[in-house]
Simulated assay, not measured.
Amino acid sequence: MKSSILYSLFFLQYVAAASDKPLKPCTIISPTNRFFDLNPIRRMPLKDGEKKAKGDSDGSWHAKGYDYGANFTLNFCGPVVEELHDVQDLDKNLWRNVSAFYEDGKKVYAIGLENTEPVFRGRKLILNYTGGSLCPSPKSKRDAPTILPREIIPSDPDDEDDKPSKKKPSGDKDKDKEDKTARRKTTVISLLCDSEPLAKTSVSFVAAVDSCTYFFEGRSPYACGGVHSAQQALSPGGVFGVIALIAILVYLAGGCVYQRTVMHQRGWRQLPNYAMWAGIWRFGADMFIILTSSCARFMPSRRGYSRVSLGHENGRRGRRNEDENRLIDNLDEEWDD
């Protein structure tokens, strides 16, 4: 009984260790234990000499901007396929990591860099890109209201010292400047499940907040989730085999202990149900002997050797008869003399 418990604990620890393996990039397990893999909807550039598959679109995913005045290009869990140049407010070594961008005239604005870790906000599957081009300052917005400074009229000349200064300290200016430079364009993609039989992946633009944060909605069959195949280290047949092996070990161990301690058996007789297994072994041995002996008669080599041996024996018998006759004749002649 104790051995069965130990084997069961070992099996559970093995399965738990297999389930703790790190996930691949662009995969996630939901709070409801469903597995999501977004790698199939990631567009990859064609290799040298590789032809485009039938039904595949050129380049990355595209979303129409409608009233925003620009169309968007993005990819899932990876940089865009297109080769970018002169991306605004980004170092040249980061151009190849841009996962979403749009063009305004001849200028290219990045709205997020590559990210391979989707997250869950409740039950919403979210893919977030950060670190794009700089967000525009509030002064450059068309709808930003212009607020004039209010003039303070002192009621007493002695209160002039209490008049607040309109000039800001240099430290505050530097701080405001840092805050403006720290704000960069970001992208938020909300992925929804599309379980239609002929459904295809699509991306649509939802809104832009302050020309700094862009919201998209993606629909795809790959956003429906499934069973994590890597979590199950053994197949159903393997699980059944492990259970059967544990049962056999428990049967042998328990039977040997019982036969040795209670029945005081020694040697092979310690095995549980020794008489039954011995009878099965003898039956199998007898059947093997019967089959091999019956098949041996049909072997040509055995038949040939038997013929040679029979012929040799007949020759020896003939020579014996001649010798006997010759001896009898000699005895008859001596008797006559």
Rank of each mutant, 00 (worst) to 15 (best):
A110E: 04
S140T: 04
G122D: 14
V108R: 15
G55E: 05
I147V: 15
F72K: 06
D143R: 07
T146G: 00
L74H: 05
K106I: 07
K139C: 05
N75K: 07
S140D: 14
E103C: 03
R142K: 15
A110Q: 06
G132T: 04
G65W: 07
R121P: 01
S137P: 12
G131L: 07
L74Y: 00
D143A: 14
V87S: 08
D89V: 13
F120L: 02
D86G: 11
P118Q: 03
D58L: 11
P149V: 00
R142P: 00
K124M: 10
V80S: 02
D86K: 14
I147M: 11
P138R: 08
W61L: 13
K106G: 15
P145S: 06
S133H: 04
E117Y: 01
K52T: 12
I126M: 15
I147P: 06
L148W: 01
L84G: 04
S99E: 03
G69K: 03
K54G: 01
W95C: 14
N75H: 05
A53M: 12
Y68V: 11
T116Q: 10
G122P: 13
L134D: 12
F101V: 14
T130C: 00
L127T: 07
C135L: 06
G122L: 11
N93Q: 06
F120W: 07
D86E: 15
G105S: 02
N97C: 05
H85E: 10
I111H: 15
R121T: 03
F101D: 08
S140L: 08
P136C: 06
N71E: 13
T116K: 14
R96W: 04
P136Y: 05
G59T: 08
G112S: 06
G122C: 10
V80L: 12
